[in-house]
Amino acid sequence: MATGGRRGAAAAPLLVAVAALLLGAAGHLYPGEVCPGMDIRNNLTRLHELENCSVIEGHLQILLMFKTRPEDFRDLSFPKLIMITDYLLLFRVYGLESLKDLFPNLTVIRGSRLFFNYALVIFEMVHLKELGLYNLMNITRGSVRIEKNNELCYLATIDWSRILDSVEDNYIVLNKDDNEECGDICPGTAKGKTNCPATVINGQFVERCWTHSHCQKVCPTICKSHGCTAEGLCCHSECLGNCSQPDDPTKCVACRNFYLDGRCVETCPPPYYHFQDWRCVNFSFCQDLHHKCKNSRRQGCHQYVIHNNKCIPECPSGYTMNSSNLLCTPCLGPCPKVCHLLEGEKTIDSVTSAQELRGCTVINGSLIINIRGGNNLAAELEANLGLIEEISGYLKIRRSYALVSLSFFRKLRLIRGETLEIGNYSFYALDNQNLRQLWDWSKHNLTITQGKLFFHYNPKLCLSEIHKMEEVSGTKGRQERNDIALKTNGDQASCENELLKFSYIRTSFDKI
């Protein structure tokens, strides 16, 4: 039985969820670079991206490699990797027998973001014989899940209580170790020597080791999670996991709180800001991140802002960003909400898709409305799209047979046209069989910064309504002859009103 693990408890099935942008060198404390989270699957090609990484700022997932063999891993080693800020997950990587050479110096898994409450997941690794993470000293947050690894031993010899604050939620089941077939031998045991430290858990006094050649490092209890030197002297209180010299914040392997210019500090002093819960960055760093993602459509890219001495992905609820200094300031009234469309555009074809934009005031991208039916549609669209004030790209209304009016965009005031449909149009209306009105132009103002209007096959939309939009939106004169079809717009509506004058002759039985 794995020490510190839980057996036999019912657990939810383990679901495996399925960018080499360097964020800056980590400095003297770390020998390499800070790398983003990685999802490495199918083959070993991307694994080489770990070569210079000291910190993975995010998670590391290595999974679904069915053609790899043990010899493929023999020359692979990433000794610079010290810390993973989120979680480490391995799933069905064939041929991998140990992690001792792959990650010989991995010391800390912070667990800032977890995989279903777990910071370390080893699942269905069919050839893994031992973990071998002999320098792993601290899992700051989260638990361990090690399950269905039929060859995995050296679990009962690990004292997880020396690595985690609590072992109650560890789930370590259905491994070879369960069948008591392992016969784990710690260093020196074969020669009758006791080389590794022994600890007591559940009444068992057991030597602690990761492999037959690597003991588990056990520091004096007084050192807590700070770690200790090879001689057993406690590291500085700002260290986490390990250090090369005692009581020196510049000799830590990793930091308990924050890293700044080669030393570990309790908090980031001005003019620095907390970033990702582990390091200090200056304003320029946060500003660069903001600008890199301002026009990016890459998933996970955030326009970072500053709030409460932190550089964070977005302002919290009730705050909006001051564009001059990136500071989050309290909103006066309802907060603006910028919604970034991942692929640059979004099609609204149902109430469900409209709900995804609920509360958005600025759309960074283009909207395509293609709704053919739905219950209580006008009210639903207004509830979900009615706060949109600005669209950076274009607005396209296409084959939306259920629409009679666009009044559900009740606050839309600006279409920038930074991206144009077919390279020309910022407003595009095609084949809307029941569209009769755009907006009530006596109450609604709309500016279209650039781009043209396109109207074709809107049989109940009168040309007068379209011409009014040209005047109000500032697009009059931009359109070419064929942009607004004269014969297919309003051709099934009563669009022309003329005053009919009647004269009559009164007659009676005795007068003409």
Rank of each mutant, 00 (worst) to 15 (best):
I222W: 14
S225V: 07
T229A: 09
R162D: 09
I185C: 11
K80D: 02
E231P: 15
C182F: 12
C223L: 02
I84Y: 00
L174G: 08
T221E: 11
V93H: 12
V265N: 01
N150L: 09
P249K: 02
I40M: 06
Y319F: 15
N242T: 11
T250I: 07
L152M: 04
Q216I: 03
L60F: 02
N149T: 10
G241T: 07
C235L: 01
G318E: 04
V144W: 00
A230H: 14
D86F: 00
Y118F: 13
R41I: 14
Q299T: 11
P31Y: 02
R41T: 14
C196M: 03
N295R: 13
E33R: 13
L240K: 04
K148C: 13
N295L: 09
E180Y: 10
N135R: 06
D184Q: 09
E207N: 05
N170L: 08
E124L: 02
F275W: 13
D288I: 03
G95K: 08
N308G: 07
P330E: 02
K191S: 14
L64K: 08
L90V: 12
N242Y: 11
Y30D: 03
K100R: 07
C228S: 02
V305Y: 06
L327Y: 15
N308F: 11
L50F: 06
L44R: 09
C234T: 01
H290T: 09
D277I: 03
E97K: 06
G183N: 06
G95L: 02
P220C: 03
Y94G: 04
L289W: 06
L96V: 10
N242G: 06
C239S: 00
E147V: 13
N175A: 14
Y304D: 03
N195S: 07
S244M: 15
D248E: 04
C234G: 01
C209T: 03
K67G: 02
E57K: 02
A198M: 11
K129R: 05
V200R: 11
F275R: 02
G192S: 10
P249S: 06
N42E: 05
E314A: 12
C268V: 00
C234V: 00
V265W: 02
V55N: 00
L29M: 15
A119L: 00
L50C: 03
N195Y: 07
N43F: 06
F205L: 04
I185D: 07
S98Y: 04
K251I: 04
I185N: 12
C196N: 04
H212N: 10
V144C: 04
H290L: 05
L88S: 01
T320D: 11
C228R: 01
K100S: 12
D39K: 15
N117A: 09
T140Q: 07
L289I: 15
C286T: 02
D177A: 10
R263Y: 01
E57F: 04
E238Q: 12
G241A: 04
P330D: 12
E33N: 14
I163S: 01
K224F: 04
V144R: 01
F91P: 00
F116Q: 04
H212P: 13
C293K: 11
C264M: 00
S284F: 04
F73G: 09
T229N: 11
Y304H: 07
F103K: 01
R41G: 14
A230E: 13
N175F: 12
V305L: 07
I122L: 10
C219R: 02
G111N: 00
C328S: 01
L240Q: 06
T229K: 06
